[in-house]
Write a protein that binds this DNA or RNA. Sequence first.
DNA 1: TTAAACTTTCAGTAATTATTGAAAGTTTAT
DNA 2: ATAAACTTTCAATAATTACTGAAAGTTTAA
Lengths: 167, 167
Amino acid sequence: MEYQEAKEKFISTWGSLGTLWGINKAMAQIQSLLFISTKALSMEEIMEELKISRGNTSMNLRQLMDWGIVTKELIPGERKEYFTTEKDVQELARHIAKQRSRREIKPVIKILKEVSSIKDDGTEKTKELIKQTKALHDLAETADSMMNKIVNQEQTWITKSLMKLIK
Amino acid sequence: MEYQEAKEKFISTWGSLGTLWGINKAMAQIQSLLFISTKALSMEEIMEELKISRGNTSMNLRQLMDWGIVTKELIPGERKEYFTTEKDVQELARHIAKQRSRREIKPVIKILKEVSSIKDDGTEKTKELIKQTKALHDLAETADSMMNKIVNQEQTWITKSLMKLIK
DNA sequence: TTAAACTTTCAGTAATTATTGAAAGTTTAT
DNA sequence: ATAAACTTTCAATAATTACTGAAAGTTTAA
């Protein structure tokens, strides 16, 4: 497999993985293009490379910046804006995990908390609702907190060794 | 908040969380309805409760069964089929993690492996592609394996203690 | 200022994905 | 065999989501 083929394969695979996880194709592809680029790219270059419109590029770049994984880079003397993505996979994972936690997981945990806190009227169905949403709440909290801890690398030597063990 | 409101809130929240993660609404809602139900439900009852068509119900139930999180239950003497979901959240998480790993993560890891194995022609861009996809490959493998280990509870006393630490 | 070089916005459209409902299929009882 | 009770399939349609492109907006240089 040659460079060009490999590059295209990577970008398109990453794009479809994105859609499978609720991230849109263009967004995932822009990010992956930047991820393997040796330099910051202009909007023009991104449009050209991915064959997408100016508007689409602009909007998705904005979203990527909102997520904190792409940043504008102003090249002195240049009028155009250039973009780069976080190149360190660990950092990248940290940003994504943090954002998805904040935007999606935390709000759901909150609702699970509310739902599982309704007053027990003694009926079987109410008991079941409380029991199951409570279990889900606990699971979600544990998973969320673990994910954050792991990705935040709040790792001492001991947790690192533990990681190796479970891995 | 009363039972009915709490129930509706739970089901609709779960449904929208689903869509956010690439799972369709009906599928998520059927699963959540079963999850808090005290008994197995027939197709009729699910349709009625969620106000969705017979076809939709049938197709999504099938998908849920393919994922291994819903099972048919045949009640003796009854002609209709009844459905239940896995009630244990741990088991549920295990099933989902296992399936997503198999269907989505593993194939992507495979492609990352391929892409990162192209021959190094010495150019900077090829080196970058190899380096970055390799990093992603390693991250994906670690994350996938950790997730599986965690949900599979292949936990000895030592991994359990470690879990507590990182948690 | 003005105008060139660029970016953003957004209404319209296209593409994708989900849903319906009725016909076809299956199973069970008689 | 027949028919009733049920489930599945799938073409048509609806709903959602993504994308385009041109107009409006912004910034910089002279």
